[in-house]
Amino acid sequence: MMQVTVDITKRDVFLVSLAMIPRLKGNWIFMGVLALAIFVLVLVTRTPDTLYSLGVAAVAALGGALGGGLSALTINVATMLFKLDAGNPMLGRHHYALTDTGLELRAGKQDSMLPWASIASVRRLSGYIVFRLNGNGVFLLPRRAFSSGEAFQAFWRQACALKGA
């Protein structure tokens, strides 16, 4: 059984959130739908009469979608960080243990045993091991919890092997 203990901070949550933003399919779908809506709105309100004005409308729609998407993501991340206080179980001391049956987690007053079937994926992401649950939950484990890069890699490889078994 491999185990590790670490203090999870707001900084950890922020960094993992930033790293996950471009990797989540829903964010790209949102920006695509937003770009299409802006483009249709431009076509309805100002009918382009040349190919150049149609291109300008398309670029404006992409820029508006990028700006709108980034604004929404910034507001969401800021709101999440604002709501995380010292009593939140996502922050503070976490003890992780890998077992044949699942991931044991102790955080504050909560003890959990997450069977491997309830974990959608185990990924390395910008200096973190991220356990993504079926649904929207995640548990993160920073590299600093380990004495060396080799120990970090070994924990990640063991988690992947157990998840795949």
Rank of each mutant, 00 (worst) to 15 (best):
M113Y: 09
T5R: 05
A61E: 00
R11T: 09
G87A: 15
L43C: 06
I75E: 02
A37H: 00
K83E: 13
S126V: 01
A37Y: 01
G26R: 02
N76R: 13
M113F: 13
A35I: 01
V16A: 08
G63V: 14
L84Y: 09
L103Q: 05
L140E: 02
D12E: 09
L43Y: 03
M31G: 00
L66G: 08
N88V: 11
V138C: 09
A60Q: 07
F82D: 07
M2G: 00
K25W: 13
L141K: 08
F39R: 03
L98I: 15
V16P: 04
V42K: 03
G64C: 06
S71F: 15
G64M: 10
L34N: 00
G127A: 06
G69S: 03
D85N: 15
M20A: 11
A161D: 12
L70K: 07
L141F: 05
I29C: 00
P115R: 10
E150Y: 08
A165N: 14
G87R: 15
L73D: 03
S148V: 06
Y52V: 14
I21R: 04
L36I: 01
T99I: 06
G92W: 04
L162I: 04
P22K: 02
M90C: 03
N136F: 13
G137Y: 08
S148P: 07
L73A: 14
L43R: 02
Y128F: 14
P48C: 07
R144K: 11
L66E: 09
W116E: 11
R124A: 08
M80S: 10
R132Q: 15
A161G: 08
E150G: 12
L84G: 07
I119M: 11
R123Y: 03
F139M: 12
G32Y: 01
V33S: 02
R124C: 01
K163C: 08
P115C: 01
T9E: 06
F155M: 10
R157P: 02
S118R: 13
